[in-house]
Nucleic acid binder design. Structure first.
Length: 423
DNA sequence: TCTGGGGTCCTAGGACCC
DNA sequence: TCTGGGGTCCTAGGACCC
């Protein structure tokens, strides 16, 4: 029996989320912007047709926005995160093994179904998601993740499929693969594509039959895996358990340029607070913290620096990590630059359970710190983020805070805003 | 004026050891 | 003073994903 993997992927997810609570946006060109309203990160099909590219700076499309009356929104991650969770719950009700791959995408294992039930099952799943939460999805099915992604891609772009394609049903799979350039394949980016083209490998079909030695030379082990997957041999399993993060990043571009050290310290303290909360939520400790500062990439007077601090003992205690990050900022800060971004990355993450306390660690102190953090997390989760926060996070004029001028309401997580919906 | 954020995996090369 | 080769660990950087 053939292996059966499906990938379920929301169409233009952020835009679709905005449309759920604002039906007037239907059939109109809509874009969603990145933090600070900088770039376009999601586009409706109508906006795609106008030639707006993924990642395009918003200021560059101003004239298009006016001419075509394009609607635009800041990223509303609370709303998108909530709708994503609902979508994943529905998928989970249908399938035992679900791998949540990204905010809008999941791989599922369909081997529990007989072959002749697959298509009806996919239709039902798609309809249920659309009916219950109003998000349109596409479904691709095949014997490997890579082929399922191609099937999904095709289903999304070709209305005749009704948004679902089971590649296991395709009679002439080579003909199908010949429709895709190598750069359309999951795991093949721009750099590798260029090298493949230079070697005469243009389409997915070409890569399927390419000389493995050449593939290995330019694309290494991952290339060979992708090649296997194109041949229908699954090299990437559906991994249902969500594994703890191996690194946790928190960084933002600033709303305004920053030249003094104080706002940098304030921002980095804030980001460290957010990152350590995530660390505690997955019951982990980290052994190191990397802090970085940078100016814009697009100006002459550039500066980038990063600094790693190894911790004496693994920890998830916010004050210790803030101290380290602030120390790094002080070390890296240079006068005369216009900073536009800083951030922290928690590294060498281990599970709390795996940490056997060191002979020299004051175990009592550890326990006190732990319970203090738990109380703080609880209060902040019950009474709102930043009900209690750290001294270095407090300031009246947060110059660095990001702009989100065109934010929609948090309809699903804030009931007061729910009442403002106009139908 | 205005150009995102958060991840993972792999490789090459250096340091070190025997 | 000369100096091989293999193994391991670590880190920086590259490439990719959404």
């Amino acid at each position: 029996m053939e292996n059966k993997i499906a990938v379920i992927d929301a169409n233009n997810f952020f835009v679709s989320c905005e449309r759920v609570f604002n039906p007037k946006l239907k059939n109109k060109p809509v874009v969603v912007l990145s933090n600070n309203d900088g770039c376009v990160v999601a586009r409706s099909n109508e906006a795609k047709k106008l030639g707006i590219k993924m990642g395009e700076p918003f200021f560059k499309i101003q004239s298009l926005v006016k001419i075509y009356d394009i609607k635009y929104f800041s990223s509303n991650y609370k709303l998108y995160g909530d709708l994503s969770a609902r979508m994943m719950n529905i998928i989970n009700e249908f399938c035992p093994d679900v791998e949540i791959y990204s905010i809008d995408e999941a791989f599922v294992n369909l081997n529990f179904l007989p072959d002749d039930k697959i298509n009806d099952f996919a239709i039902k799943l798609k309809k249920t998601i659309e009916k219950w939460i109003g998000i349109p999805v596409s479904i691709g099915i095949s014997s490997s993740k890579t082929l399922a992604k191609l099937a999904n891609d095709y289903a999304k772009k070709n209305p005749s499929t009704n948004g679902i394609l089971n590649a296991n049903d395709i009679e002439n799979i080579d003909e199908f693969l010949n429709k895709f350039l190598v750069e359309d394949i999951w795991g093949v980016g721009r750099r590798i594509s260029t090298k493949l083209y230079r070697n005469g490998i243009y389409t997915a079909k070409d890569l399927k039959y390419a000389n493995p030695d050449i593939v290995d030379k330019i694309f290494h082990i991952n290339g060979l895996r992708t090649q296997n997957e194109l041949n229908g041999l699954s090299n990437y399993d559906v991994i249902a358990e969500c594994s703890p993060k191996k690194s946790i990043t928190c960084s933002r571009s600033f709303g305004n340029k920053v030249v003094d050290i104080e706002p940098l310290i304030e921002a980095v303290s804030n980001y460290t607070t957010q990152a350590t909360l995530k660390l505690r939520q997955q019951n982990s400790l980290c052994k190191a913290i990397l802090t970085f500062v940078s100016t814009s990439r697009f100006i002459e007077n550039k500066y980038f620096n990063s600094d790693v601090q190894i911790l004496e003992n693994p920890t998830n205690y916010t004050p210790i990590l803030i101290d380290k990050a602030v120390e790094s900022i002080k070390k890296m800060y240079r006068k005369g630059y216009e900073y536009n971004k800083c951030g922290v990355i928690l590294l060498n993450i281990i599970s709390e359970d795996d940490y056997e306390s060191d002979l020299f660690v004051d175990d009592n102190l550890n326990k006190k710190q732990n319970s203090l953090m738990k109380i703080l997390d609880k209060i902040n989760s019950n009474y709102g983020k930043n009900t209690i926060s750290f001294a270095s996070n407090l300031s009246k004029q947060k110059k660095w805070i990001m702009h989100r001028e065109y934010l929609s309401n948090e309809y699903t997580t804030n009931w007061e805003q729910l009442l403002t919906i106009k139908i």
